[in-house]
Amino acid sequence: MNRMSWFNTVSLSLGFAFLYIPMVILVIFSFNESKLVTVWAGFSTKWYGELMQNEAFLNAAWVTIKVAVFSSTIATVLGTMAAYVMVRGGRFFGRTLFSGMIYAPLVMPEVITGLSLLLLFIGIGLDRGVLTIVLAHTTFSMCYVSVVVSSRLVTFDRSLEEAALDLGCSPAEAFRLVTLPIIAPAVISGWLLAFTLSLDDLVIASFTSGPAATTLPIKIFSAVRLGVSPEINALSTIMIAIVTVGVITTSLVTKHQMVRQKRDEQEAART
């Protein structure tokens, strides 16, 4: 069907308006001169300036980035291993428990994950700080990574790996030279997902952070509880801008890759 019916046009326009208008309003009012977030008083970028002066926010941002980089990297390694074990591992003792532990954190309410990890850290006497947040974030995001990677591994043509083994590769070489390049896009999107989940997380970080380490979402949450403020609007605008650029770039890159892959496949079919 090439032409859109009026019903579909209306539902799409209303739907996307609903999804985007709140964020557009948020961005517009970050440039508001007035301290009141709801009354327009002229264009100004002063809230961005104040944000840059606010050391508490900058420190929290730095902690958040550190946590996200470490946790998403460890989570990608562990999650890829877990996916490989799930898809290729065959049978081993406790396999059902293992797959249960991979899927359960995906549906576990954050308050429960946070509470249980906090009780563990207190139980073993680990001081709460950057390390405990990294451990907590790694645990739940490795499950997301393993789901993303295993969905790629399932569709993977196993004979390629077998060919490499037949041609004299060791299993490790076969993984590094054949499997990894093929599943790389899934591994990268798993990393990105883990990174965003970590940047975004408020609840688990609140439970597992100590006074020494406050992440940006915790900071934003405590500021926002007192009401709307233009500084938070400015901060949100920066975060929205980063995400938008990131998502558009990745989608362009994947599109480019898909086009190239299609062309390669067509050429391979011709020869």
């Binding site: 709140p22 977030v37 949100s236």
Partner: peptide, 27 residues
């Protein structure tokens, strides 16, 4: 992509956006 984009944006920020819209003097 337009549907996925909000999903990548901070949950907290998306909830916060409604505070300014729904308040008594809100949009």
């Amino acid at each position: 992509m337009l549907v996925i984009l909000p999903f990548w944006t901070s949950f907290l920020i998306r909830v916060y956006a409604w505070m300014g819209i729904l308040s008594n003097e809100g949009f």
